[in-house]
Design a protein around this nucleic acid. Structure first.
Lengths: 151, 151
DNA sequence: GTTGGTGCAAACAGTTTGCAAGGAA
DNA sequence: TTCCTTGCAAACTGTTTGCACCAAC
């Protein structure tokens, strides 16, 4: 945790920014909720619990900054809010998501899975891929079981 | 074109809706711009050229309706606006997109490409896939050529 | 007459911005 | 001092909603 913050601090410094208390508080919330996919509002409320003086705009600005530095990824599952997801350290590619259309849960897939597909796209469409977004919409295991019981 | 409208009319009727003049005008705009990825505002302005009395809310309501009936797909490239994309007739899966980070152009890939990946996800994550969203961000062929010249 | 659909304006939600003030180098 | 950064409120943007009115059956 602490070493992770330290490395993020370095990344900020290299880019000419400081790790202010507000930024640190925001990063800590993201680290503590790595599994979740928090919206800016979610992050704001969580940060506020420990640093009540923080403003929503600061959270937005911090998240934007972190996105720019590729420390977090901004995602959009089509529900009108942006969500922020900490990148795995050293990850070159963005991970994928499984969104359950029944319960709304979001699971992550860290495996690449797209290597072959990307090779095909780069070759056949002559498109130089820099990043990707892959989301599957469907029914998670838990909801499948629940649905089966109800039948 | 006309037969395509006719089939959409049937789809609406089956679901208990009418193809009003406003809805037809909206569908026509979508058909005439199948290659593009229009936002609701874009659609509104284009419909307005031929049916100046139409209201923005009606366009939104129509697009929502068409999305619900899976005649169009609502997509989001992360720029804050929803875009609407006519589904290929008979398509079971949503097509993929190549978004150029230099010129902003969006190309479509109709090929599935994900069959294998989906089989793996369904097997290993026990997730029942219903739909997917795959977007590659990178540099299109045209911009690659342009960049090369400028070097 | 009932029902569904429309246009308008107002409301809303998420996000961004202007600005005066605070704080570190 | 100078330059970032912050908190607040206001502004903005895209989208949704309430409501009176209209049209079709």
């Amino acid at each position: 945790m602490e070493d992770r913050i330290e490395r993020i601090k370095k990344l900020l410094h290299t880019a000419g920014y400081k790790l202010t208390p507000q930024r640190e508080a925001t990063v800590r919330v993201l680290l503590e909720h790595e599994e979740d996919h928090l919206s800016a509002e979610d992050v704001y409320l969580l940060v506020k619990e420990k640093s009540p003086e923080i403003g929503l705009a600061t959270v937005y600005r911090t998240l934007e900054l972190l996105t720019e530095l590729k420390i977090v990824d901004k995602i959009n599952f089509g529900d009108g809010v942006s969500r922020y997801d900490l990148r795995q350290e050293g990850a070159t590619h963005f991970h994928h998501h499984l969104v359950c259309i029944e319960c709304g849960s979001v699971a992550e897939i860290q495996e690449d899975l797209l290597e072959e597909v990307e090779a095909i796209v780069e070759r056949d469409w002559k498109f130089k891929i820099k990043d990707h977004r892959l989301t599957f919409h469907g029914i998670c295991y838990r909801c499948q079981q629940k649905d089966k019981q109800e039948e």
